Amino acid sequence: MCVIVTKEINQKMPSKETLKQCFLANPDGCGFMYNYENEVYIEKGFMTFESFYARLKELDEQIGLKKRAVVFHFRISTSGLIDEGNCHPYPICNDIRVMRSTYLKCKDVAFCHNGIIRDYTPKSKLINDTQCFGIHVLDKFYELNHEFYKDKDICRMLKLLCKSKLCFLNSDGEIYYIGDFVDVKGNSCSNNYFTYYTKRRTSLNYLSH
């Protein structure tokens, strides 16, 4: 199962140990999104923990991530290729080429997903169910209301449609959740399965600081 980890504005960053636990348990690529200068930036397609963490440290030095909201996603593939373009997060749009971009910025909102949206399993082996859901559902709501993710009735509908968990980040640094998230060491996570995985299969001594 994938995992989403969030850091609200002025909240502490997840530790390197926590992030590595997430990656080890969900090794099919990762990405993150953050607010900066009234836009949402997406950086994804990190297929090794080393490349991901090196970029995160570099970005922190450049813009100071503590004062940003940051949403991380670590993937286990359930549909679509295991490649950079199928890593989350995604912009809300109807262009698969844009959704598969590994570096982009959005004017107002982006999202990621945890779970399997079985009713939107794609026919193509290239893309995944989250991208299909984004194109066929989220983009339609976005056309009607650019802040649909703030509407409680729409969120209840989306929860019924996807039967899983969604996370939205807007350009103001506000994070919105669909589905139950749990606290893990001060950060909200879509599940805590990654903690059991690493305890069972990995020595925490291996997770260097």
Rank of each mutant, 00 (worst) to 15 (best):
V3N: 02
V3E: 08
I4S: 04
K7G: 05
I9G: 04
I9F: 03
Q11P: 05
E17M: 02
L19H: 00
K20N: 05
N26C: 13
N26K: 15
D28W: 09
D28E: 10
G31F: 10
F32I: 12
M33V: 02
E37P: 03
N38W: 08
N38D: 13
E39C: 14
E39L: 15
V40Y: 11
V40I: 13
I42K: 02
I42M: 15
K44S: 08
G45R: 13
M47P: 11
Y53F: 15
L56E: 02
E58W: 08
L59R: 09
L59E: 10
E61M: 09
E61I: 05
E61F: 07
K66F: 06
R68G: 01
V71E: 00
V71I: 11
F72L: 06
F72H: 01
H73E: 01
H73R: 07
F74D: 00
F74N: 01
S77E: 05
S77F: 02
S77G: 04
S79L: 02
L81G: 03
N86Y: 00
N86A: 06
N86W: 01
C87R: 06
C87L: 07
H88R: 11
P91D: 15
I92Q: 04
C93Y: 15
C93T: 14
C93Q: 10
N94G: 14
N94R: 12
D95M: 05
D95P: 01
R97C: 13
S101H: 15
S101L: 11
T102H: 09
Y103C: 10
Y103T: 14
Y103P: 03
C106D: 11
D108K: 14
A110C: 13
F111W: 12
F111Q: 03
N114T: 10
G115A: 10
I116S: 12
I117R: 05
R118E: 14
D119V: 07
T121N: 09
K123W: 11
S124H: 08
S124V: 05
L126K: 13
N128S: 07
N128P: 01
N128V: 03
T130Y: 07
T130I: 07
Q131A: 08
Q131N: 12
Q131S: 05
C132M: 08
C132L: 07
C132P: 02
F133C: 02
F133K: 01
G134F: 04
I135F: 04
I135M: 11
I135W: 00
H136N: 12
V137L: 14
L138S: 05
D139L: 10
Y142M: 06
L144S: 10
K150D: 05
D153I: 15
D153T: 15
I154C: 07
K163L: 09
S164Q: 12
F168I: 00
L169K: 09
L169D: 03
D172M: 04
G173T: 05
E174L: 05
E174R: 08
Y177M: 06
I178M: 06
I178C: 02
F181H: 02
D183T: 10
V184P: 00
G186L: 02
G186V: 01
S188P: 11
C189M: 09
C189R: 00
S190K: 06
S190I: 04
Y193Q: 15
Y193I: 07
T195Y: 00
Y196T: 07
Y196G: 09
Y196C: 14
Y197Q: 01
T198S: 13
T198C: 13
R201G: 12
R201H: 15
S203Q: 13
L204F: 14
L204T: 11
L204P: 11
Y206C: 14
S208D: 12
H209Q: 13
